[in-house]
Design a protein around this nucleic acid. Structure first.
Length: 590
RNA sequence: UGGGGCGUCGUCAAGUGGUAAGACAUCAGGUUUUGGUCCUGACAUUCGGGGGUUCGAAUCCUCCCGCCCCAGCCA
């Protein structure tokens, strides 16, 4: 039993509070059903991870359900490549869906619902051009004007809509509009488009349709069809909520008039039996995620990929799920991040440092440690015989003994880090310098006896002697040494390429652009640094692609998913640096 | 005087009329065979601002200020 008081439980977010109330009032008969509804028109990013953690997390916490539903109502933008990647990313994050549906599953039902709306006098076919519709929509401050086609009869509208479906009309010839209120202060309600003509193949339904439903018409009805109770989306959809409600309400009203279905009684029965019509879905909105130093809109990410600013959707500099995965972020760290940022309605910009903190906390516990030299310089131990070799057993993870150890060979010639040596070390530098002694991690104390430079003044070789009494890095009761360096036996070293990543953008908020600029003007051309000549210890030879590890004293890395081939090419991505107080001290003294 | 939202520490964020949680960041110390980890301590007398109600207000009322969203046949 702990004498420490329990940490106060963090208050529930506003959505959980709403659900608690709904549970208490029995509103949904104890049911919680959410959905994650991406349009398959791009790869998922970390903003989607927030939504995924929220929606699937709600289902988990309330023993409810969460559907994955592809909002695939615009065939010209969508592709199976994206649906595959989305499914992969959701699974990788550690979530499983109760159902995987598509809005296109409901095209037939939605069509009948549209006809129902027409029969109810709630929708009409408008032959105005797109320009005319825009002009007649009015402005934010002035009401719109009714379309001249607004008064068409039910029969005329029905015939026209059927001819739209039959493919008798060209793209743009007309649209189906909801008949709401052209003077509504909420512009969304000024007779919104419900269906448009698009003679385009759909990635799932092929050429079966040439009219496609709009988002607002589709979304609420799909939720109702699936029995979704809490439909959670981001803030920019707040203005759409009245329209969401209008669609659902109109359907429910229509279902009270079975005679309107006529020969389509089976569809009526099917719709009327759906849980969504007793447990009516409600939409709630939360603030989308923003992170410093990156962009989080699909449109912008598509642009970065298509215009070649990055090497694909999974470029480790991309804020996509696949980018973070390739960069070496773990699903655990991303989930933890999503939990820590919370869910609220205030626009916010989360510091990237929090994501890194989540990653470090996870990997500090779990990542095996190795030694790797990023910028190698030769260290020769002059009193260590050429033919001698020690093999040290060094713990793989000082945080967790169960990880065991790896064998690390030590020989006369070693590689050490160039910046671990200074010809004229300043006060607080406790690494190697002339006549200085340091510990080589897990091996011996060594003392610098000299060094060589080339014509440019670059150090080419460092000489030292070792103390045989300090085997394992200890000198029982003897001299203490402040610095501990990482090293790799030159004879045993494996060559490796290390890729370091900085922020993709030079600005903390690349969305805020100066006059005449665009966000791509702030892409940092030096955000990727390739170190081709790194030396790593032989125990890493079998490292599998995707494996996370720590280079001691340097950072967390992973073997690249695409280019790392054990035995052929060692390619490592730096996920995050270790916290570096030495760097801070240096900065201060500058 | 178009409508809809939102303003609590540098950044997120609890708080729901009873006297400002927590995390990240930052700073100061200790431990340490990673300048890592870990540990300890510091860090909002005040909640966008002004009035008001109340014994008591971040929470209620009121006026003001600031930021975000909406005029796609995108989602």
């Amino acid at each position: 039993m702990s004498s420490k008081p329990e940490a106060p439980e963090k208050g529930k977010d506003f959505i959980r509070q709403i659900i608690d109330r709904d549970m208490e009032s029995g509103k949904y008969h104890g049911r919680v059903h959410t959905r994650f509804p991406p349009e398959p028109n791009g790869y998922l990013h970390i903003g989607h991870a927030k939504s995924i953690c929220l929606n699937f997390g709600l289902a988990r916490d309330y023993q409810g359900k969460c559907n994955l539903r592809f909002d695939d109502t615009n065939p010209v933008k969508e592709d199976v490549e994206y649906v595959d990647s989305i499914r992969e990313d959701v699974r990788w994050l550690g979530f499983g869906w109760d159902n995987n549906f598509y809005a296109s599953d409901y095209f037939e039902k939605l069509y009948f619902i549209a006809e129902l709306f027409i029969k109810m006098g709630k929708a009409y076919v408008d032959h105005q051009s797109a320009d005319e519709i825009r002009e007649n929509r009015g402005t934010l401050k002035e009401p719109g004007k009714d379309s001249p086609y607004r008064g068409r009869t039910v029969e005329e509208n029905l015939a026209l809509f059927r001819s739209m479906r039959a493919g008798e009309l060209a793209d743009g010839a007309c649209i189906l509009r909801g008949k709401i209120d052209m003077a509504a202060p909420n512009v969304m309600l000024r007779d919104p488009a419900l269906y448009r003509i698009k003679h385009a193949d759909h990635h799932r339904t092929g050429g079966a349709w040439c009219i496609y439903p709009m988002y607002d018409f589709t979304h609420g009805l799909s939720d109702a069809i699936e029995g979704v109770t809490h439909s959670i989306c981001t803030l920019e959809f707040e203005n759409n909520r009245p329209l969401y409600d209008w669609c659902v309400d109109t359907l429910m009203e229509g279902l009270k008039q079975p005679e309107l279905f006529g020969e389509n009684a089976p569809i009526y029965n099917e719709l009327a039996a759906l849980p969504g019509f007793t447990d009516r879905p409600r939409q709630y909105e939360f603030a989308r995620l923003n992170i410093t130093g990156t962009v989080l809109s699909k449109r912008k990410l598509i642009q970065l990929v298509k215009e070649g600013f990055v090497n694909g959707w999974d470029d480790p500099r991309m804020p996509t799920i696949s980018g973070f995965r390739r960069r070496g972020f773990t699903p655990e760290s991303i989930r933890d991040f999503c939990e820590r940022i919370g869910v609220a309605k205030a626009d916010s910009m989360v510091e990237y440092a929090l994501l890194e903190a989540c990653l470090r906390e996870d990997l500090n516990k779990r990542a095996p440690r190795y030694m790797g030299i990023m910028d190698p310089v030769k260290l020769v131990i002059e009193n260590y015989p050429e033919d001698r070799e020690d093999v040290f057993e060094i713990a793989l993870n000082p945080e967790d003994e169960s990880y065991g150890s790896r064998k690390v060979p030590f020989t006369r010639e070693l590689w050490i880090e160039r910046d671990d040596f200074m010809e004229e070390p300043p006060k607080k530098f406790f690494r190697l310098g002339p006549d200085r002694e340091v510990r080589l991690r897990g091996a011996y104390y060594v003392k610098c006896t000299g060094y060589e430079k080339d014509a440019d003044g670059k150090v080419t070789l460092i000489r030292a002697t070792f103390d045989p009494e300090s085997k394992g890095g200890w000198l029982e009761g003897g001299r203490k040494v402040k610095g501990t360096l990482h090293w790799v036996s030159a004879r045993h070293a494996i060559d490796a390429e290390v890729r370091n990543y900085g922020s993709l953008f030079t600005r903390e908020n690349p969305n805020a652009v100066d006059e005449g600029k665009t966000f791509t003007d702030y892409v940092d051309p030096d955000s990727l640094t390739v170190l081709p000549g790194c030396k790593v210890e032989p125990a890493m030879a079998d490292m599998a692609p995707g494996a996370n590890f720590q280079f001691e004293r340097t950072g967390y890395y992973c073997a690249d998913l695409r280019d790392h081939k054990p035995g052929q090419a060692m390619v490592f991505n730096r996920t995050a640096t270790l916290r570096d107080t030495w760097a801070k001290i240096q900065k201060k003294t500058d």
